[in-house]
Amino acid sequence: MTLPVLSSVRERLGAALFEQVAGSKGPDRRERIALSEGPRWFDESRPIWQVHNDAAMFVGGLRALLLQSLHPLAMAGVAGHSGYRGDPWGRLHRTSHFLAVTTFGTEADAQAMIARIRAIHERVRGIAPDGRPYAASDPHLLRWVHLAEVDSFLYAYQRYGAGSLDQAGRDGYVADAARVAAALGVLDPPTTEAQVRAGLHGYRPELKGTREAREAARFMLLKPPLPLPVRAPYGILAAAAVASLPVWARWPLRLPYLPLAEATVVRLAGEGLIRGIRWVLTPVTDSPTAA
């Protein structure tokens, strides 16, 4: 039985955290997603619900951004068009809303969201610092971003999630995510965990730790615009995200590899923090955590 005062504190903390992630419109958007009637791409039995509705996404999201930054053309698009330095919270709110609508929303809302994102991608193009042209609508870059996200969300869930997925469940998650990826313009997205791993390996010759990527990593990990009281918990999330990266992704971003500390201190601290986040969010989010 939860004491009324403790329950009240828990709800206030959960509401504050949810608003930080989803923005001031988050509660209204969450209600719309939950109450809207109509067919959905996925129901509650699908692995994508299990993964995207878990607090482990906090680690997975950071990991995905770090991994994605290793592709020079993808990073050039982020540096030139995303406004991640000037409006990092806005970018987080938009990403959270996209994930919520495409995972938990109606088919009509998901398709409308996809159409908006594809229209934005058509406008994001330019020349990378190495002189190569890039376009966010390029299926090859879209595939890289998708691979990094799916691998990161799944890895974080398996390590820090409330449960775990067996092989069929992991393949099911990848197949679920492939439906969204294909709608976004990814050609032949992976449908199994093995295909994700093979896809990541195939991109490795193209990856590089550019100056822009290292600056983005420092901003995300060391200089986020956060109030002083939440910097320590965020530091744990950052450490957990770095520890979850493959070793080959560390050096290009000048990130440390401390296997003993990562297997003990970082993992225990990460597990404790994610359990705490899950606890404060639970009473507020009987429906999806993202919005």
Rank of each mutant, 00 (worst) to 15 (best):
A175S: 12
Q20P: 11
A74V: 15
V186P: 00
A240T: 08
V59I: 13
L226S: 11
L258I: 00
R179K: 14
P229Y: 07
D109T: 03
P224Q: 07
P189R: 08
R29S: 15
E122V: 09
L253A: 00
L226T: 11
T103P: 08
M57K: 12
A22P: 11
A198L: 10
W251Q: 10
A261H: 06
V280L: 01
P39N: 04
D286F: 13
A64G: 07
A213C: 05
D138V: 09
A182T: 13
L3Y: 15
I120Y: 14
R29M: 15
R159P: 02
G38M: 00
R40A: 05
G90R: 02
P47L: 02
V145M: 03
P259C: 03
P229T: 08
F98L: 08
T2W: 10
A168E: 09
Q68W: 10
E11W: 14
R91S: 02
W49H: 15
L65P: 05
A108F: 13
S164T: 04
Q195V: 01
S45P: 03
P233H: 03
A232C: 08
V266K: 04
R275E: 10
A112P: 05
L200W: 11
T282P: 03
G169L: 09
L35R: 15
R10I: 06
I117Q: 11
T192H: 05
G163R: 07
S82N: 02
L281H: 02
F18W: 08
R197Y: 14
G272T: 10
A217S: 11
P88M: 07
V180G: 12
E19G: 14
F58W: 13
H71K: 05
Y234V: 00
A263M: 00
E271L: 10
H121L: 05
A79W: 11
Y257W: 14
A74C: 12
G60D: 05
G185I: 08
L3R: 14
W251I: 02
T102N: 08
A148P: 03
L245I: 07
L221R: 09
R29G: 15
E149R: 01
A216Q: 15
S8M: 13
L67M: 12
P246L: 06
T191L: 05
D54P: 09
V266E: 01
